[in-house]
Write a protein that binds this DNA or RNA. Structure first.
Lengths: 242, 242
DNA sequence: CGTGGACTTGAAATTTCTCAAAAGAAGTGG
DNA sequence: CCACTTCTTTTGAGAAATTTCAAGTCCACG
């Protein structure tokens, strides 16, 4: 019986989706097999190399997408070139701004990334027909709003030291491998991106990383690989409660 | 015939709502007369004086509300007391965080404010039954997310001068009276609140206000009343494109 | 007319940035 | 496998912006 159910599901799930990393948790998890089948007809998988743009600030929105793996940075640029990263997106996040014709920021792959691209129309039709999809997107928007506001506190009120620790804390919490209080991960961003995320210069980021290393809060190998021996010490350094 | 329609509507619209400032544009605009009638049974109007809290950081959410008039500030506090205002809400915004048990920030009346309070259950039931309500709240969440991300650029990358000008620009754009390029309004926030919104100290805010005044970008009367003779000059000072 | 609160102004201290140079990685072609 | 180049990161020192601390002013209110 178990087997029979699996076979039935298997027949219902489109081939391309069957092995998809984002099928559970992403927007596809909010669809019925029939809806998923219909959507998958218009979907296409795309690789985006680190540094390549998915969509530019001010460009018109013709498609939405799901992140299958990798990290995408969302950023805003001022006329004179000053830049601020306003969010990071991880799998299985949905990317795109519903109900608006053009993008208010650019989305660029921070690491090599794979995304599943959907035509704008297909998503908008589904959003009308599947309340569970709208619910999921609404929830994601609220979660991103919470994250954005947390980051506003970081940008407005924390010291450079706390900012860098907050960034490491954020990445640590999006990286699975974690044993007890210990955690290790690769940074998805360069020093320059980290600076743009924290509202600092790369020199200040570098100095604060060095300081955290000398204080024993983190270990650094190869610039990008970080080990955190004690997550609570990192939280303290980040000015995070408890 | 025109009259007849009006009478019909009039009969359908609950008495308390008939004269409500927020009935158009707020969440009530997304409801059918029957839904509105049902909701109004559980709704209550409440005055909140400037400085009073509507909900505190970490408190459990037992109700949602609509702003009828006035300005509410949303803020986060760190353990050591550092504070950051993460958003301002104006009529007819909806206040509250759907799908979450407790508030991640405090909401406090910046000016004398009136709100219409709804029990949590009533809103959550309606959100299931009225897709147009969920759509409206989803839209507001996305708009707030856009605003939050715009503000992240302000917090992370602008100078003190640009920050203060950006704040004045924000308030100017939420105040109607505006003739040609000229605009005037009362600030809904004290210098101390402005500082907490901009990630500055009150002294820096004060100095930058003085500088904008001496440069002729704004006029100040009675500390709180601002006149902007030329909105474009203000936009320039705020580092806003065009 | 004095008091309290909000705001402004001044001067010194501190943090962060800027500019400059050095040190490490990573890739290239001989 | 070794120079060679390039790009990223680190480090240092002085400059600039913002904060801190300390008065001082303004205004509403009793």
């Amino acid at each position: 019986m178990d087997i029979q159910i699996k076979e039935t599901q298997s027949r219902d799930i489109p081939g391309v989706c069957r092995s998809c990393e984002a099928r559970h948790g992403g927007i596809c998890s909010a669809l019925t097999p029939a809806q998923l089948a219909e959507l998958s007809k218009h979907a296409s998988r795309r690789k985006v190399e680190a540094g390549n743009e998915v969509i530019g600030q001010g460009e018109s929105i013709t498609s939405y997408s799901s992140i299958l793996n990798g990290v995408v940075k969302l950023s805003k640029v001022m006329a004179d070139g000053r830049q601020q990263i306003v969010g990071l997106q991880f799998a299985p996040d949905f990317m795109g701004r519903p109900f608006l014709g053009e993008s208010r920021m650019s989305a660029e792959a921070a690491t090599d990334t794979e995304i599943c691209v959907f035509p704008r129309r297909a998503i908008e039709r589904l959003m009308r027909d599947a309340p569970s999809l709208e619910r999921l997107l609404h929830n994601q928007a609220l979660q991103e709003l919470d994250d954005a506001r947390d980051w506003m506190l970081t940008l407005g009120r924390k010291t450079a030291q706390e900012k860098v620790a907050s960034f490491l804390w954020l990445i640590a919490n999006h990286s699975d491998p974690e044993v007890g209080d210990r955690s290790f991960f690769d940074l998805p961003l360069s020093r320059s991106d980290i600076a743009d995320f924290l509202g600092l210069t790369i020199e200040t980021v570098s100095r604060q990383m060095t300081k955290l290393r000398k204080d024993g809060v983190i270990q650094i190998e190869n610039n990008r690989h970080i080990t955190v021996p004690d997550l609570e010490r990192l939280a303290n350094a980040a000015g995070i409660d408890q």
